[in-house]
Design a protein around this nucleic acid. Structure first.
Lengths: 152, 152
DNA sequence: GGCATGTAGTGAATGTACTTCACTATGTGG
DNA sequence: CCACATAGTGAAGTACATTCACTACATGCC
């Protein structure tokens, strides 16, 4: 019977290591965590307004302006006019940006394979089920806290 | 047979949620992630020089100076003279700092209980074993990369 | 003792991420 | 047409983190 706190610590340790691996990728590409995050979202959604990006990244729109500035300077994205709304700009990946996203996906998949490739299938299935259930339970907890944290 | 990338994504999702919970704690205590991290280390090691803290946090000594400045200002730690080395200072938790560490530990344990308390013991054991083995494997990978990344 | 060399900590300058507040330009519903 | 909301940015400020230069102290060696 493993100590519950230890289990949580192991999750955090693993996350820390994965994050370190991501940092390695960032240095190689001359990017930063936040910019990679933005690029990643952009890669899954396609051209997007900065407002939508701000929601997706859970930061202020003002911050997105700065991140996009950096990515424009490094040649990973461009600001295109939004057809039908002259206030908005569509942040769009360049070829360089798309390749970075592609490489990131590949790096991510390779890491997953190196980490979990040798785990027996039944054990891995249990592992993922517990993990997914925990994420779900956590999301519910957050929901409850947001809805009624102190029902006196 | 779960997709390996999805498993890794679930790990990251959970880590993100846990981190969000930590952020809640920080706001309550008027602290920040980096300062909490330093306090946490200090809580497990006892009074420590800034050099040692820099190693433990994996940041530059100069950065530790700034973090300690902030924690001194907020009354969580003090700088005490090092007996036997007048260059060094022993960063020491105040009562306020110790209580913050204690609260953090409690919050951490409570979160672990809320997340994993209902998971059947056998499944949780498998979960933790896979987790621990993965962390171990990852550490070995990093070690290999550091030792000889390109054995031509 | 005296001197070379290394170590502990900090000042100065810089870069990134992030925030709030104020402002402009544009869209939209009465 | 006007009130109001929305998209983006300038200005100013905080926190984290870095490098480089510097001071104070420790230590080994002759």
């Amino acid at each position: 019977m493993p100590d519950l706190t230890d289990v949580l610590d192991h999750v955090l340790q693993l996350a820390h290591l994965v994050q370190a691996d991501l940092a390695r990728f960032e240095r190689e590409q001359g990017l930063t965590t936040s910019r990679v995050h933005l690029l990643w979202v952009l890669g899954t959604t396609g051209p997007t307004t900065q407002q939508v990006l701000a929601s997706a990244l859970d930061v202020t729109p003002r911050n997105v302006t700065g991140l996009v500035d950096g990515l424009v300077a490094s040649g990973h994205v461009t600001r295109e006019p939004h057809p039908g709304d002259r206030r908005a700009t569509l942040v769009t990946t360049t070829q360089l940006g798309s390749r970075a996203v592609h490489d990131l996906r590949a790096s991510h998949a390779e890491l997953a394979a190196r980490l979990f490739g040798d785990v027996p299938e039944r054990r891995l299935a249990t592992f993922d089920q517990v993990l997914a259930a925990t994420v779900q339970r956590f999301a519910d907890l957050v929901e409850d806290d947001a809805t009624g944290p102190a029902p006196s």
